[in-house]
Write a protein that binds this DNA or RNA. Structure first.
Lengths: 215, 215
DNA sequence: AGGCTTATGCCACTGAGTGGCGTTTCGAAA
DNA sequence: TTTCGAAACGCCACTCAGTGGCATAAGCCT
């Protein structure tokens, strides 16, 4: 009872996975711009037309792992039971739960790592990822706006979402920078740390004892 | 102060301005994807090669007004006298000062309006703008990190920067949505409103009877 | 005025992304 | 099992963003 989905769906998923893994490997090895789509498609033995039926751009295939996580996040937000806790805590806990769920496939952690490394060194992937985040968080905003019953002109919901996204990005960067093989546990720890730093960020002031020397 | 710059510099600036204004007009009229670069260049009577010596992409020419503002912001951050005020207040006040300075050229306000309208309806411009913001705020982070003497692993500086950017974007969106002709004064008012909402965003909770929380 | 620098125009080229269309492959009903 | 419709695929031709090279022109400087 493993697969209730059709053979066709499975085959499609297989080529999708093959494209993602091969793309991550090739991009990591020779750089995003050093690999053409023709090359990638030839390696996976798939036509370029098929590639664009699975991904909307060259950047998307490299961002697939994180985008899958955000889609799960969005779905969870739709069905989550809401309590009266601060939205920021809600977002953090949902994010942590989603991370646990994604990490059940242990290959995902490795893929996210390559995904993130490529994002950091490739401007066009960065831009694509930021845009995806913006779209997704706009959808989360819509969902929460409806479910929490807030005034649509209230900018606080948008702001708290941006804070959460910023905290997650900070956590990802710190996680990638860690020595050794980044683990799922380490990532969740970084997420907790980053969210915990938010209140202090608002009141952050210049360090008292520091004096400036440069022109 | 008059123009001390050379004639050559002025001519270059003229073609730059012509490209920006024509691009904003054409894109607004027929959509970003409905205008080819060849068309734009023919209208301004400039070769495509020249276009790419002034702008690095089709998206950049549409984002030029806001990018100019952020560059001025970055320069200001470099030379600003720092006091012990919270960094968030520092960022807000600097942003307001930079807006005043940009608005001295009254054409700028109109350009930003078109810039922002196009950004909202064009995904690729959105992505480009977000990436530019990320790069710029990373530079601001570097500058403030050096000038404030903070631990480089402290995520609070990054977080407070993201909050400021998010507040500015929220202000821009509200400004664009205002009826009538958006003015510079209205924009600064929106900026103040958005920044003021930040502390309450953190503690925002789901509340059917919507109890307001004040800082 | 003459040489130097710098912007520009022109041209050919790569590579991403799209549309059309015929063919294969799977799913499901008969 | 056969057959039929739908979905996925491959192939081909095309548009357009962006780049590199090289020759030319325009401003700058002595």
């Amino acid at each position: 009872m493993a697969t209730q989905i059709s053979l066709r769906e499975r085959k499609k998923q297989q080529t999708r996975d093959a494209l993602v893994d091969t793309a991550l490997a090739l991009f990591t090895e020779r750089g995003f711009d050093g690999v053409t789509l023709d090359e990638l498609c030839e390696t996976v033995e798939v036509s370029k037309r098929t590639f664009f039926r699975n991904f909307s751009s060259k950047e998307e295939v490299a961002s697939a792992p994180l985008e899958a996580m955000w889609r799960l996040f969005l779905d969870t937000m739709e069905t989550l039971p809401l309590d009266r806790a601060p939205v920021l805590d809600l977002l953090r806990d949902t994010l942590l739960a989603v991370l646990d769920q994604m990490a059940e496939d242990e290959r995902w952690v490795g893929r996210v790592r390559l995904n993130q490394r490529l994002t950091e060194r490739t401007p066009s992937i960065t831009a694509h990822g930021l845009h995806f985040c913006a779209r997704t968080s706009a959808e989360v905003e819509t969902t929460l706006h409806r479910r929490l019953g807030l005034d649509s002109r209230d900018p606080r919901l948008r702001l708290v979402l941006e804070m959460a996204v910023a905290a997650f990005h900070a956590a990802l960067r710190a996680w990638i920078a860690e020595p050794g093989r980044p683990s799922h546990a380490a990532l969740t720890a970084e997420v907790r740390t980053a969210f915990a730093a938010i209140p202090a960020a608002i009141t952050l002031s210049a360090a008292p004892s520091t004096r400036e020397v440069s022109p």
